[in-house]
Design a binder for these strands. Structure first.
Lengths: 189, 189
DNA sequence: AATTTTAACTAACACTTGTTAGTTTAGTGA
DNA sequence: TCACTAAACTAACAAGTGTTAGTTAAAATT
């Protein structure tokens, strides 16, 4: 009734290797070796290499979209929305460090699902942009080019997965607090 | 006396394709097609695919290192050093949008030169970290975790190459001004 | 005019790629 | 005990990989 277990192992191992070398450089034999089996055995559980990438990326992208919908529809001030977004990125990056690497670096190797992914990503960015624009109108955010503010925030948030595993062991809570301060208080009037 | 011309064309085209699909996904046949020739013809000008990646990444990494040495040795205040760093990243990202993609995403496929690259990168980050620490001691920068400040700044600076070609046509000068304000004034006491 | 150089070509190589087919083994439920 | 299933295996394939060897045609140099 739950024969998904082994498949999850494979997806997890795939994400780990994809982070290390990128999707294209990881072979099905690499992946099998990581799991201690032969390449052909993988196909008892999955349909294709492509499917692995799809499920890794799309599940994260959908999580971002769902959470962004909650944040944008909440009756909260702009700086609370921004804090929520920072925490969302830290949460996803913590729970899925490997997957975030694929989402950032290998999305262009999605095939069937590429268009869908881009729709999700564009929607997410558009919601984020609107939150910033509203903040500017409300004078909660300095009146700089919203495109540059968006770019600056998103760049940092998308890179969190690279820094979380660092030896310095940034604990999740103090990271969230410090990063919000640096990113948001720096933007406030 | 300058038979390097054709080789430069190849390196440039390679960097462009590496940005689009990543080093591993670009074949020598792709590269040849981009240049309107056959794959084997490339080898009249270059020694290997690996060599292309090496020269793209190492030349940029060395430029960062050289410029950082000037900045750190200059007798300037911390916020001037930070402004200089922002401008350095914008300059390199503008002049070498394609190469920056390889540097960020394909450095792990360096082989012989991987160790050298990591030495350069670690040195750069260490210099940057020391500038931030000095700024904190001088009370020019808020007393947050310097590791998080470094991470936040570097994440944005390393992503500039992704945004410069955007349709919005962020012109270089206003980008530099706005970004410095957002990143640095936000950090200042 | 003769020679060298530049830069393309065709043909082929040894190896690696994702994937399929068919088989074997061990554990589970009837 | 018997059938079924999950999950591994061996063997193989067709296509694609980076690269080499040897050749050719035109341009530059002597």
């Amino acid at each position: 009734m739950k024969p998904q277990n082994r498949k999850d192992d494979i997806v997890k191992a795939a994400a780990k290797l994809f982070k290390q070398k990128g999707y294209s450089a990881v072979t099905m034999r690499d992946l099998a070796t990581e799991l201690g089996i032969k390449a052909a055995s993988l196909y008892n559980h999955i349909n294709s290499k492509q499917e692995l990438l799809n499920s890794i990326i799309i599940s994260i992208a959908e999580e971002f979209t769902n959470e962004m919908n909650k944040i944008k529809n909440a009756e909260t001030a702009t700086d609370q929305k921004l804090t929520d977004i920072v925490e969302l990125h830290i949460k996803i990056a913590s729970e899925n460090t490997y997957g975030m690497a694929s989402l950032n670096n290998d999305w262009m190797h999605l095939e069937d699902q590429l268009e869908y992914y881009l729709t999700l990503r564009n929607g997410y960015e558009e919601d984020f942009r609107n939150i910033i624009k509203t903040g500017i109108q409300n004078k909660e955010i300095i009146n700089e080019n919203p495109e540059i503010i968006l770019f600056s925030l998103l760049s940092t948030l998308r890179s969190i997965y690279l820094w979380i595993p660092k030896k310095e062991a940034l604990d999740k809570h103090s990271l969230s607090k410090s990063l919000s301060q640096i990113l948001i208080k720096g933007i406030n009037t």
